[in-house]
Design a protein around this nucleic acid. Structure first.
Lengths: 117, 117
DNA sequence: CTGCATCCATCGTGATACTG
DNA sequence: CAGTATCACGATGGATGCAG
């Protein structure tokens, strides 16, 4: 189901505080998205096959699918060098790199709950 | 599919740096988990119906399902007062509250990408 | 190398109705 | 109030083959 957005004609939300969190969650929703972002964060740009090797569990189908989604969400930028053999690179946009603190915080939490629990 | 862990016989990971991020992602995976955590973060304890009202889009089935998952992941604590009519409360564990910085960072990112994009 | 297409199995999500 | 049961559907995932 879609959250049926367009609350633009409803109460204004200049602070983007309400509802935007849900929107952000949508962007990172999906089993591989944060993983892809993580790998692009530690090393970019990455070719398609690089990402495949970095995340062995993901299939080509899902990888390309999640990359497309991230691209249309403005988090990832796709660069096609239009060569033969094909050469495509992926890197984060400014918005994507801005996710770094979130990922770091999440990673810290993972480490903490590992040593504590 | 399960990620088939048990890399314990592989290279040790005393810092929990590798693979734990995937584990953390699993905990917050699911459409409503971060939303539930968020609401428990701003106000707790919350009764089941409180959470239902706080997240109108979620169905009872999904809410109880995500709550059970969060509970077994040690993020949420369920308190059953064993009364009639039933009275159950949910609140975050220490590990759950430790997710606060991550949620804050994610929320900041949402606000930022709203005003910037 | 970087994808896309297809078939098929499984999982997550959702709507509705029902229970103690 | 706090769930459980059932049915249905789309999303996700895996295997394989094809294309530029």
């Amino acid at each position: 189901m879609d959250v049926t957005p367009a609350p633009d004609d409803g109460p204004p939300d200049p602070d983007c505080s309400i509802g935007r969190t849900e929107n952000a969650l949508h962007v990172i929703q999906g089993r591989w998205k944060l993983l892809v972002i993580h790998h692009l964060l530690v090393s970019a740009p990455r070719r398609f096959s690089d990402l495949e090797r970095a995340i062995p569990q993901v299939t080509q189908k899902m990888l390309i699918q999640q990359l497309r989604a991230l691209e249309s969400d403005g988090v990832v930028q796709r660069i096609d060098y239009d060569e033969v053999p094909p050469h495509v690179e992926y890197q984060l946009t400014a918005a994507g790199r801005a996710l770094s603190p979130s990922l770091t915080a999440l990673h810290d939490w993972a480490v903490q709950s590992c040593s504590a629990g």
